[in-house]
Amino acid sequence: MVDVSLDVNGKTRRLRLKLESKNPFGSLKDRIAVSLIEHVADRIDKDIGVIESTSGNLGVAMSAECAARGVPFTAVVDPRTSVFFIDRMRGLGARVQVIEEPDAAGGFLLNRIRYVKEQLNIRPGLVWTNQYRSEANPNAHFESTAPELMRQVPGPATVLVPVSTGGTLAGLTRFVDATGADWRLVGVDVHGSAALGRTSGRRLLSGIGASCPSSFLDPATATVQYVDAAEAVSACLWLSEEAGIGVGGSSGATVAAALRMFRQDPEIDELVCLCPDGADRYRTTIYHADWRTAQGITTAGMGGAVVYRALGESGE
C-alpha cells in the first residue's frame, strides 16, 4: 500500500493505492493464474497444455506458472496487446496467437474466445482455464486479495475496483458478505464496456472493460463509476508526474474515478484504489506521446487535485 495525501478543492484527502505491480510477475493476475491452473490441474496433459484468452497480464502470469510446471501454454491476444506483453510471454516459453479481426461488439474478445473454442475442437486434450467463467477467478480474490487487503486496511473503507471479467469485484463482494468487512465496494468500468450490462462499443484501453457481460456480477446490485480513456490516461500521467507512482490504464481509470468522487463529495476523506499493474508495460502506449496523439487522446488536468506528499509503503 502507498498512501498519497492530496489537496482537493482546498481539503486534505488521502488516496490509498494497493499496488499489485509488486507481485512476482507484475500484476494482480499473478493471483488468478495460480488459482485457474490449480483448478484444472488434474485435467492437464503436459504434452498438449493449456490455452487462455488474455489482454496481457494474465498471459504473462500464466506463461510463468505453466513454464514452472512444464506445461505448454497458448495465449490468445489481440492488436491492443502491447509488444511488452507479447515479448514477455514468448520469453517465458508461451505460444502467442494474435486475433486481428474485430468482433461484432466493437472489440476482439468475442473472436478471441471463438478461436479458443476452435482450438479445443482441433486439439483434443487441450485445457481452457476460462477466466471468464471459472469460479477459480473470484475465489483467488476471496482467498488471497481480500484477506490481504483486510490486513492492510483493517477499518471501514471505500474500495474502488476496476472491472474486466468481474472476478476481482465478485471475490471482494463475497468476502464482504462472508466476513462482514466494513467496506463499500465501487466498481470502475470504461465507456464502451458491456461488463456490467451496458451496450458494448469501441474501447481503447486493455485490461479494463469487456465486450460481454460479466458472469460473476449482477449489474442491478453493483455500484459503478464509468470513465473514458482520456480520463484514465490523464490520471496515469498526473500520478506519475505529481507523485512519482507509475500505474497502468485500469489503475488510472480507478484513480480518475476516485478523484471525481473526492470532488463531488466533500465529506469523503479517504478512498482505496486497487491498482492491477504498473507503468512498465505501457511505455509504448499510455506513456508515449505519439501513441496518445494517434489515438486522439488529449490529456487534461485532474480538476485541481494537488499532491502535496506521497507517504511511504506499508503492508505485505
Rank of each mutant, 00 (worst) to 15 (best):
D87K: 15
D78E: 02
E118S: 14
G107R: 09
I99V: 15
E100L: 14
V71C: 07
V71D: 00
H141Y: 06
T81C: 11
V76H: 04
V161A: 06
S134G: 08
F142T: 07
V163Q: 03
S82N: 07
G93P: 00
D103F: 02
T145F: 08
I122A: 15
R112P: 00
R88Y: 13
R80Q: 14
F85A: 00
S144Y: 12
E100G: 02
Q152N: 12
R123N: 13
M150A: 15
F84K: 09
P147C: 11
A140E: 00
N111P: 05
P147Y: 10
S164L: 01
N121S: 15
R88K: 14
R80W: 02
F73Q: 04
G106K: 02
F85N: 03
F85E: 07
A140D: 08
V163F: 04
P124K: 12
F142H: 05
V77E: 03
G106F: 06
P147Q: 06
R133W: 01
R80M: 13
D78P: 10
G91Y: 11
R114L: 13
V163S: 01
F85W: 12
L149Q: 06
P72H: 09
A136H: 10
G70Y: 01
V76A: 06
G155V: 03
V116D: 08
P162I: 05
E148V: 01
V127D: 10
T145Q: 00
Y115I: 06
A157P: 04
R151Q: 14
P102G: 03
N137R: 08
E118G: 14
T158C: 09
R69F: 12
E143P: 00
F73H: 09
D87H: 15
V153M: 05
R80S: 07
M89G: 00
L160A: 11
L109C: 07
A94D: 03
L120A: 00
T74Q: 08
F108P: 09
V116T: 10
I99Y: 05
M89I: 09
N111F: 01
I99H: 01
V159D: 04
F73A: 03
V116R: 02
V98D: 07
E118K: 15
F85G: 04
L120Y: 08
A136T: 06
V159H: 01
S164G: 03
P138Y: 04
R69T: 11
W128Q: 01
E148I: 12
L160H: 03
F142P: 08
I113L: 14
G107A: 10
V161I: 13
E101G: 12
T158V: 13
F84L: 14
E135M: 11
E100Y: 12
A94K: 03
H141D: 06
G70N: 11
F142M: 02
Y115H: 15
K117L: 12
R90S: 10
R69C: 09
S164I: 02
L109V: 12
W128E: 02
N137T: 05
R69Y: 00
Y115L: 14
P162D: 08
E118V: 09
I86K: 10
R151D: 12
P102W: 01
I99W: 01
K117M: 11
Q119G: 09
Q152D: 15
E100T: 13
N139W: 08
I86W: 03
